[in-house]
């Protein structure tokens, strides 16, 4: 049956779509366009929250970073940690997911290179399984939760009594960990909390920012790029933004083209599913 131009367009081989997407993402990586970057209100709030803390404050990063989310969370975390280093904060880091300890190794190296001393200026807590239970346990009894750290092992740990000593909590992850952080730690102790998240869950986390439970959100690769600009810490966030832009433009084009072809062939028999 003659499908017509729009019929053929509608049933284009998906491998052509994949190849065009590869090309659309690659070209701006080789030939940067230099598109403008707008700072979003949620990232600005996260930056302002950190900036408002005095030097020497105690901050905590709980991270559920994993290889599947590292593309977004890693640049965000590094930008945040570099800002914390500039502010001379004392830092505690805890991996809340099984794959996160390896990423924390990288942050620890960054801190070492910046002159931080482990145990005195920063501390890495060991991974514990249990998801929400660990957050609940930390909120009730931080020292008991990490009973493997004995008095004398770390001057920084000895200076803390419980979670209420933490001046800022930053939770990083692509799942539910931010909700556990505000449900148990922020709710019980009033600890100011910001979250570093993948763009996928920004829409769902927005109400918690509007309600003030999160003081700020760094979301996706753009969030990382925006934070790098605000904190004046160069990083990998900004380098992918042009490719992001062109990729988005391609996706918008496919939506428009697909719908134009659909409405043009509507009424004629055409295979294919739809919403």
């Amino acid at each position: 049956m003659d499908q017509g131009f729009f019929g053929k367009i509608q049933n284009m081989d998906r491998r052509i779509i994949y190849t065009i997407l590869f090309a659309v993402l690659l070209v701006p990586m080789f030939n940067p366009i230099g598109l403008p970057l707008r700072i979003s209100d949620v990232t600005q709030s996260a930056y302002d929250t950190v900036e408002a803390l005095p030097p020497g404050s105690l901050v905590m990063l709980t991270t559920a970073n994993a290889p599947g989310t590292a593309a977004e969370l890693e640049p965000q975390s590094i930008a945040l940690i570099k800002h914390w280093i500039k502010k001379d904060f004392k830092i505690i880091m805890w991996p809340s997911a099984a794959e996160a300890p390896r990423f924390i190794d990288g942050y620890a190296e960054l801190l070492d290179k910046s002159g931080y001393v482990e145990g005195v200026d920063y501390l890495v807590l060991p991974y514990l399984a249990g998801n929400e239970t660990v957050f609940g346990s930390m909120a009730s009894d931080l020292k008991g939760t990490f009973n493997m750290i004995s008095p004398g092992d770390s001057a920084l740990w000895d200076s803390i009594t419980d979670v209420s000593d933490i001046d800022l909590l930053a939770d990083c992850g692509g799942g539910e960990s931010q909700l556990w952080a505000i449900a148990h730690i922020e709710a019980k102790h009033g600890t100011p909390t910001i979250c570093l998240i993948t763009a996928v869950i920004l829409a769902v986390r927005q109400p918690y920012y509007t309600s003030g439970q999160f003081k700020g959100i760094i979301s996706g690769l753009n969030g990382a790029a925006e934070y790098e600009v605000l904190a004046r810490v160069p990083g990998q966030g900004a380098s992918g933004m042009d490719a992001q832009s062109m990729g988005h433009l391609w996706v918008v084009f496919t939506i428009l083209m697909g719908n134009i072809a659909y409405f043009a062939t509507k009424g004629k028999k055409s295979p294919g599913g739809g919403m």
Partner: peptide
């Protein structure tokens, strides 16, 4: 997005319009 996302009714159209605006509003090209 190309083969399945169709604005067949009001709900779908609203979803797609909102999605397109958020996509374009989130990046420099938009």
């Amino acid at each position: 997005c190309y083969r399945a996302f169709r604005a067949r009714n009001g709900h779908a159209a609203l979803l797609l319009i909102s999605g397109v605006i958020v996509m374009l509003g989130s990046v420099g090209i938009g």
